[in-house]
């Protein structure tokens, strides 16, 4: 069997099962379908070319996501993202729970918000916060894995995730109020 066949087989067995993950993360990083597809292709090609550097049976998902992130930073981040960024430091109050605890303590209003709106809101988070939230909440990675991929200490992952979740929660709440799904609490 030619060497390239074995390489392709192991790549197909260990790397390709993570294609959906790579695609979802690319979509949120690039915030544009066609750019995301280019980014995924480039990532998978780079991964294949450096497949000899990957130790079989280790964390292929984290390895691919690291390559994805580097590819994005090197080639795509320069291009201006279309989405308007939310100013994450403007988020003052902690948790919309205090706004809804009397009317909707279990957060039923979240269920009125469609998937697209959630994704759109995620796209407005600043880069570092967005990628942390995607890796945690969209892909379910552990804090330590996210720290490795994004090259920051675990404490930074923790504080970014906290802020990103709170900013997103506030945005979704404002959206639900605007759409009339929930009444804003009288001050």
């Amino acid at each position: 069997m030619p060497e390239s066949d074995t390489k392709r087989q192991t790549f197909e067995a260990e790397a390709l099962p993570h294609l959906d993950t790579v695609y979802r993360v690319a979509l949120r990083l690039a915030a544009d379908e066609s750019r995301a597809e280019d980014l995924v292709q480039e990532t998978m090609l780079r991964a294949y070319r450096s497949w000899h550097q990957y130790t079989r049976g280790t964390n292929a998902r984290a390895w691919l996501l690291t390559i994805l992130r580097h590819t994005f930073i090197n080639q795509y981040r320069k291009a201006k993202r279309a989405a308007v960024e939310v100013d994450i430091h403007q988020i003052e109050s902690y948790t919309v729970f205090h706004d809804v605890q009397e009317t909707d303590p279990e957060g039923a209003f979240f269920d009125t918000i469609v998937d697209d709106e959630v994704l759109r809101a995620i796209d407005t988070l600043p880069d570092g916060f967005r990628e942390t939230l995607i890796l945690s909440d969209v892909e379910g990675l552990a804090y330590a894995e996210i720290a490795t991929i994004t090259e920051v200490p675990v404490g930074t992952v923790k504080s970014r995730l906290f802020r990103a979740r709170q900013a997103l929660q506030r945005q979704l709440y404002d959206y639900a109020v605007e759409m009339g799904y929930i009444q804003r609490r009288e001050a």
């Binding site: 959906d20 695609y23 998937d115 909440d137």
Partner: peptide, 19 residues
Amino acid sequence: GFESAYVRFLEARTRGQHA
């Protein structure tokens, strides 16, 4: 309880896309 529901909601609403 509220924050757990929120995190579960985020997970449920964002994992539906496939390559």
